[in-house]
Amino acid sequence: MIVRQLQEAEKTTRRVVSPDGNWESTRMLLKDDNMGFSFHITTIYAGADFQMHYQNHLESVYCISGEGEVETRVDHKKHPITPGTLYILDQHDQHTLRAFTEMKMACVFNPPLNGKEVHNAEGAYELS
């Protein structure tokens, strides 16, 4: 059994802050935990507006708190994000995330991340 406390994990190298200043993520479950996925608690800072394209990963995102929107870049559909919203990037969707207020999100990635990944120039995480 694995048991971790968010407050403790935030004090370790499991907490990663994006170089562009848009988010921070505490990676609660990672590849070396051998579960087949990774689980993160991510804070998107208020005012963040950035593009992502997870070419190597599938992701599901559950909004715990805050408000924003996600826009699919192929068809420019905007979807509001409020507490209780789940969005799933099941097609490696190119998308833009906007945070109107600070947003707290629970994120699951498959395949799992190793822990130190940040977005590359295309808005993706590299496979490692």
Rank of each mutant, 00 (worst) to 15 (best):
S60K: 00
S65V: 02
E117G: 07
E59F: 01
G123S: 06
A48V: 08
K77L: 03
G47F: 13
L113I: 15
G84S: 09
V74G: 00
L113E: 12
T42M: 14
L89G: 03
N114W: 06
K78A: 09
T43D: 15
G68M: 04
E59W: 00
D90W: 11
F109L: 13
I64L: 15
T101R: 03
G115C: 12
R73F: 01
M52L: 15
F109D: 05
E102L: 07
M52V: 12
D49A: 10
I64G: 03
V70D: 08
L97P: 01
K116G: 07
E122S: 12
I64N: 12
D90L: 04
G68F: 03
H95G: 02
T85G: 00
C107L: 09
G115M: 09
S60F: 08
D75G: 07
F100Q: 08
G123F: 13
L86Y: 04
K116P: 05
E117A: 01
G123Q: 13
T101W: 00
T42L: 13
T72F: 10
F50T: 09
T96D: 08
G47N: 10
K116V: 05
G115P: 14
M52H: 06
V118F: 09
T82S: 12
P111G: 13
T72H: 03
T85F: 11
A106M: 10
V108I: 14
M103T: 02
G66T: 04
T43K: 15
K78Y: 00
Q51E: 15
G115S: 11
D93P: 00
E67L: 10
N110D: 01
A99Q: 07
A106I: 01
H119N: 14
I44E: 04
V118L: 10
H57W: 01
P80I: 03
A121I: 08
A46S: 12
T96S: 10
I88C: 14
K104Q: 13
F50P: 08
A99I: 11
A121N: 12
Q91D: 06
P111R: 12
H95D: 00
A121F: 10
Q55D: 10
P80Y: 02
V70H: 07
H119A: 11
V108W: 04
H57N: 09
Q55E: 13
H95N: 11
G68Y: 03
I44M: 14
E71R: 13
N110M: 07
Y87L: 10
A106D: 04
Y87F: 15
N120D: 15
Q94P: 06
H119M: 12
Q91H: 05
H119L: 15
H53V: 00
Y62F: 15
P112V: 12
H92V: 02
G68W: 03
A121P: 05
S65M: 08
V61S: 15
Y45L: 03
D49Y: 06
G84F: 08
E71G: 02
I81Y: 06
E69I: 01
E67W: 06
H76C: 03
V70S: 11
E59G: 03
H76E: 09
T72W: 13
M105A: 11
G66K: 04
I44K: 04
Q91F: 00
F109W: 10
H119S: 09
